[in-house]
Simulated assay, not measured.
Amino acid sequence: MTPDDRALVDRFLDMMAAEAGAARNTLLAYRRDLEAGAEALGQVSTADVEALKGLGEAWRDLASSTVARRAAALRRFFGFLLDEGFREDDPSAALPRPVHQRPLPRILDTHEVEAMFREAEDRAASGAPTALRDLALLELLYGSGLRATELVSLPKASLRPEQPFLILKGKGGKERLVPISQRAHAAAAKWRETLAKDGPWLFPGGKAHLSRVRLFQIVRAMAAASGIAPARVSPHVLRHAFATHLLAGGADLRVLQALLGHADIATTQIYTHVDSARLVELVNARHPLADVPK
C-alpha cells in the first residue's frame, strides 16, 4: 500500500470509529480488505472504473463471500473519499458483485432431538450436578433457540420464579425477550439449586462463565451418547432445529424472527427452504385451485 493510500485509509478508519462506532475487530477487518484491494489495484484511492472491473478476474479463485466482503469495504471507502472531497467520482459501481448463496443449515429431525432428551433426562434422574447442567443446557438451546454466547453468559438472576421468559442482550448488544417453556424453566431452576449463592453466572466455568468451546464439547458428547454422529451436532444446529421445528408446527415467520433475534427477516427466511416439503404440502392443500379438476 502506498503512503498516500495508507494515510487515507487511516482517516477512513478514524471516521468509522468516531461516527459509525465500529469495533476494533471491524476496523481491523476493513484494513485487511482495503490492503487486499491495494495489492490487486496498485493504488486503491485513485483506481478508476477499468481497474475495478479487473478485480473479478484477479479474485476469481476466492470464495464469493470473501469477494463480496472486500468489494463492500472498497465501496464504503470510495464513498468516504467522495464525501470528503478526496475524489470527484465514485467508481464503485464497477466492483464485482458475486452471487452469495447462504448455505442451508444442518438440522436434526424430531426423533433425533427426542433421543438426546431421553438420554439427558435419564442421566439427570441421578441428581448428578453435571447431568442437571447438561439437561438445562439442552432445554434452553432447543427450547428457546438461544445462541451459544447468549446461553453461556446468562446471569443467574435472569432466571426468575414464575417468569416464563428471559430478557437478554443478544447479537450487537440488542435486548430481546426470549420465552422459555415450563420444562426448560424447571430444568434450569433445578440446576441453579446446585450453584453457590454468590456466583453471578447461571452456567459458571473456571474464573467466569462456561466457555463456548466447553458448551460445544458438552453438546457433542450428549449427541454421541444418544447414538447420533457428533459431527452432525453443535449448539447452533440445535438452534436451527428449534427454528425449523417451530416453522413446521405452524409458527409465523415474523414471530420466528423475533424469537431468534434476527435483525433482518431475510436471515429467517432460510428456514422456508429447509422446510420445503411442508410448504409444498401447504400449497397443495390451501391453494384456491387445489381442488379444481384437471
Rank of each mutant, 00 (worst) to 15 (best):
195 L>R: 10
40 A>I: 01
219 V>H: 03
66 T>W: 09
15 M>G: 05
36 A>I: 08
264 D>M: 14
145 G>E: 03
26 T>V: 09
145 G>V: 02
97 R>H: 12
20 A>Y: 14
187 A>M: 13
97 R>V: 13
197 K>S: 14
47 A>W: 02
40 A>G: 02
52 L>T: 01
83 D>Q: 14
187 A>N: 04
219 V>M: 11
142 Y>G: 13
275 D>Y: 02
185 H>F: 11
155 P>R: 03
150 E>K: 07
215 L>R: 04
287 H>M: 10
39 E>G: 14
25 N>K: 11
49 V>T: 01
64 S>Q: 08
232 R>V: 08
62 L>Q: 11
98 P>H: 13
212 R>K: 14
30 Y>Q: 10
77 F>T: 01
118 R>L: 13
9 V>F: 11
269 Q>Y: 07
185 H>R: 15
210 L>R: 08
104 L>Q: 10
259 L>E: 12
254 R>A: 12
261 G>A: 10
269 Q>V: 03
159 L>V: 09
230 P>M: 06
162 E>S: 10
161 P>H: 12
100 H>P: 04
98 P>K: 09
292 V>K: 14
84 E>H: 06
281 E>S: 11
266 A>R: 08
188 A>M: 10
75 R>T: 02
260 L>G: 07
27 L>A: 05
255 V>D: 12
64 S>F: 00
215 L>D: 02
172 G>D: 06
14 D>T: 13
83 D>H: 09
257 Q>P: 12
209 H>P: 02
247 L>F: 07
287 H>K: 08
50 E>P: 01
278 R>N: 08
248 A>H: 11
284 N>T: 05
125 A>V: 07
149 T>K: 14
134 D>R: 05
62 L>W: 01
212 R>I: 02
203 F>C: 07
128 A>E: 15
121 E>P: 00
270 I>P: 15
250 G>E: 06
160 R>Q: 07
50 E>R: 15
3 P>N: 05
175 E>S: 06
287 H>Y: 11
73 A>G: 07
183 R>T: 13
134 D>W: 06
219 V>P: 01
272 T>D: 05
211 S>M: 09
156 K>M: 00
287 H>D: 05
167 I>H: 03
243 A>V: 01
292 V>E: 10
228 I>C: 13
88 E>L: 08
24 R>F: 09
102 R>A: 15
26 T>D: 07
83 D>C: 02
52 L>E: 03
224 A>G: 04
43 Q>F: 01
150 E>T: 00
208 A>N: 13
274 V>H: 09
63 A>K: 14
282 L>W: 06
58 A>R: 10
145 G>R: 03
24 R>V: 00
211 S>I: 06
216 F>V: 01
159 L>D: 06
18 A>E: 14
279 L>T: 04
139 E>F: 05
250 G>V: 05
243 A>I: 00
189 A>S: 12
94 A>P: 13
233 V>K: 07
143 G>Q: 09
206 G>F: 03
83 D>G: 04
94 A>F: 07
48 D>A: 02
220 R>K: 13
163 Q>S: 05
116 M>C: 07
156 K>S: 07
30 Y>E: 04
225 A>D: 05
36 A>M: 13
106 R>I: 00
224 A>F: 11
178 V>R: 03
72 A>Q: 03
130 T>A: 15
29 A>Y: 02
97 R>Q: 15
